[in-house]
């Protein structure tokens, strides 16, 4: 499974999402490749992603996608990430 974390610069905040998503997925025993990218390259970066992790600000810019878009409020809350990832994965 491929997951992409999206932010404005592709550094910093998306990096934190990537790191924490990897930790949560590891705890859940789910194998996934998590990458970080900036909003300008979302089309390419997320073309084959199942899940996009991001902030509410980027949902419109991400636009139509086959991926589940998960809006994260607190990037340091692993419980929130875990709950939302599990919900998206059904």
């Amino acid at each position: 499974m491929k997951i992409v974390a999206i932010c404005g610069a592709g550094i910093g905040s998306s990096g934190i999402l990537k790191v924490n998503a990897e930790r949560v997925l590891h705890k859940l025993g789910i194998e996934a490749e998590v990458t970080a990218a900036d909003i300008a390259s979302v089309r390419l970066a997320a073309s084959d992603a199942q899940i996009i992790l991001t902030s509410a600000e980027f949902v419109d810019a991400i636009g139509a996608t086959n991926a589940d878009v998960i809006v994260v409020v607190n990037y340091f809350d692993q419980q929130e990430l875990s709950d939302k990832l599990l919900a998206a994965l059904g």
Partner: peptide, 14 residues
């Protein structure tokens, strides 16, 4: 350009 997304947790801006 991108909005206040840098406020990544309650009370914290990166």
């Amino acid at each position: 350009n991108h909005g206040p997304y840098v406020v990544i947790a309650p009370g914290l801006a990166l």
